[in-house]
């Protein structure tokens, strides 16, 4: 099911985001608190540093190693700082058909595209939907697909829907394409009779702005023929949380946002809070799109209800 983290704000070491909080993303790979499955399929991140050479070019790090044992990542995280980060630990079924490998690691970012994407969730019956979905993906985009997952299919669809604007589209255009994508996938699901809980918590970033969806098709619709395939912890709505403030740092022995409430220069979004103390975090409501854009005092957080069923 994966866990994702997105950050945008003042420079912060990757270690402070990925390792040091008591429920950090790296810890969520083997001890998530709001998911009953482990996320052992690998780690990937894109990290932008506004003060670096070629600031639009992110660090791109991917490894199928378990991140908690990855010395290279740890060493990098101690030194490197980011003004924007999109990081992902991949959760996959515990079998040989799960598509384990570097080609399926998130985030996705095709050359020439402004927006990178990571996914937390699972499009049920993807194998059955895929031939239909691929018909809606333009040939040049299709050519760039490397992986086999539902997540990359979604990314390729959104890229196709952005069309000529894929390299420049702003948050509003991206949201428009995302909603079109949700409708398209929903129509195909209905046509093929797929009516099963499928979570699409999507995270996008262009190195400064962040846009995310908390969305599920057919929430609560489990397989009525197989009680053994249903687990209580899978019956809830997949979580998504954020926290915002002037700066993310250790305050009173705990990582939290500090500074004035009416400033939101720093923004942190994650599948689940990075700390056991969740009181500084806000849960994104179900069926909501959330966006943060602009820099410094011009930063704006915007939310919208999603009415696509």
């Amino acid at each position: 099911m994966c866990r994702v983290l997105a950050y945008s704000g003042p420079p912060v070491t990757l270690e402070d985001l990925l390792y040091r909080p008591d429920s950090s993303l790296i810890r969520q790979a083997y001890a998530p608190r709001q998911l009953h499955k482990l996320n052992l399929g690998g780690f990937g991140m894109l990290a932008w540093d506004g003060g670096s050479a070629e600031p639009d070019l992110p660090w791109d790090y991917r490894s199928t190693e378990l991140p908690v044992f990855d010395g290279n990542l740890r060493a990098l995280a101690r030194k490197a700082r980011a003004t924007c980060l999109l990081a992902h630990v991949r959760g996959i079924p515990y079998n040989t058909d799960a598509g384990f490998g570097p080609h399926n690691l998130h985030p996705f970012r095709y050359p020439g595209c402004r927006w990178a994407m990571a996914h937390n969730g699972d499009l049920h019956d993807h194998d059955r939907l895929k031939p239909e979905l691929l018909r809606h993906i333009d040939a040049p985009v299709l050519k760039q697909m490397r992986g086999t997952t539902d997540s990359e299919t979604i990314y390729a669809l959104v890229t196709t829907l952005l069309g000529q604007r894929a390299g420049d589209a702003d948050g509003g255009e991206l949201l428009h394409a995302l909603f079109a994508c949700l409708r398209l996938v929903g129509d195909i699901r209905r046509r093929l009779g797929v009516e099963r809980n499928s979570a699409l918590n999507l995270f996008f970033s262009d190195g400064e702005a962040i846009l995310a969806l908390r969305y599920t098709y057919d929430f609560g619709c489990y397989d009525v023929t197989r009680p053994d395939s249903v687990h209580e912890s899978n019956l809830g709505y997949l979580s998504l949380w954020y926290t915002t403030g002037e700066r993310y740092q250790v305050t009173e022995n705990e990582f939290r946002m500090s500074g004035r409430a009416d400033r939101c220069t720093a923004f942190l979004l994650a599948s689940e809070p990075l700390t056991r103390d969740t009181t500084g975090w806000v849960e994104v409501p179900e069926y909501t799109a959330l966006s943060v854009s602009g820099a410094g005092s011009d930063r704006r957080i915007v939310s919208a209800d999603i009415d696509i069923w």
């Binding site: 009416d262 849960e283 409501p285 957080i301 939310s303």
Partner: peptide, 23 residues
């Protein structure tokens, strides 16, 4: 718990620096 958090979030959306989507 969820409702209190959500209403607080919506209140905060009205604060300076954040706002709701104007669609």
């Amino acid at each position: 718990d969820a409702q209190s958090r959500e209403f607080a979030r919506r209140e905060q959306m009205g604060m300076s620096g954040t706002h709701r989507w104007q669609s």
